[in-house]
Write a protein that binds this DNA or RNA. Structure first.
Length: 237
DNA sequence: GCCAAAGCGGTTTATGTGTG
DNA sequence: CACACATAAACCGCTTTGGC
């Protein structure tokens, strides 16, 4: 019953940026080549570099059938976005690519709701409950934590616990609609109340104010008003 | 059946921490 | 302040999986 983990290496932000930028123009084969060259500076071991490439490809290139169009939209937006908005796109794509990452983020988001500081040991324990008490789980947990630390999502305190810096504000409507689609797909629901989107755990590092009007304009969603103040968002495709 | 990709566990190296 | 000990991070190579 051991669940696959996959995310077993620290991923750097500029690696993700590079991958997303190249993914629009290159074939799969070319991607492997270009990435290998690019990563050579940061990752010396052949095997480790291959691992990293595998992960980057899975995040931005070899994605599941049903999120291809979402991915393509994200790639189109990418060049015109600022640092924060790009980070959100990466965040969403990693969540979709790696359930392990998604689960960890969800746990962490919940903990941050209750307290300001989250010890890495607590996160580790939670992940072992979900994925079994294995060495691999430890490695993956720290890989995720190290990665998001280096992206500036969390800050480390005294080497043992993490705290949340200021939330990252996202106002770009295209990026917001991306975010909503990620939430719906990642949690496997048909529809979600707009209220729940605003404070969703999966995007705990971000702050945004999604407007129903703008979602409707994007054509990807169907918006239904239920009762007085409940607005349901549903994917049209 | 072959080759590349994905997954895994063990080992080494680096960094941090508490104690005398 | 030095030392041992603990934990984190990086690295490596083997096994399994999956597409052609």
């Amino acid at each position: 019953m051991t669940k696959a983990v996959g995310f077993d290496q620290k991923v750097l932000l500029h690696h993700l940026d590079f991958t997303a930028n190249e993914a629009r123009k290159l074939t799969r084969k070319e991607m492997y080549e270009v990435l290998d060259n690019y990563l050579r500076n940061d990752i010396k071991g052949t095997k480790s570099r291959k691992n990293a490439i595998t992960m980057l490809m899975k995040i931005w290139f070899i994605v599941d059938e049903e999120i291809i169009s979402l991915r393509n939209k994200a790639l189109e937006l990418f060049p015109d976005l600022n640092k924060e908005e790009r980070l959100l796109l990466h965040w969403g794509m990693v969540i979709l690519a790696y359930p392990f990452f998604k689960d960890l983020v969800q746990k962490m988001g919940n903990l941050f709701r209750l307290q300001d500081e989250v010890p890495s040991a607590v996160v580790g324990r939670k992940m072992k409950e979900l994925y079994g008490d294995r060495r691999r789980v430890e490695v993956a947990t720290s890989a995720v934590l190290m990665s998001i630390k280096s992206w500036g999502i969390v800050e480390m305190l005294k080497g043992r616990s993490y705290k949340l810096p200021n939330k990252i504000h996202i106002t770009n409507p295209d990026v917001q609609s991306f975010l909503v689609e990620v939430i719906i797909r990642a949690t496997n629901v048909k529809a979600i109340p707009l209220d729940m989107v605003q404070t969703h755990t999966l995007f705990f590092p971000f702050q945004y104010d999604v407007s129903a009007t703008e979602l409707r304009e994007s054509k990807v969603f169907q918006i239904d008003r239920q009762g007085i103040d409940m607005i349901m968002v549903e994917l049209t495709s």
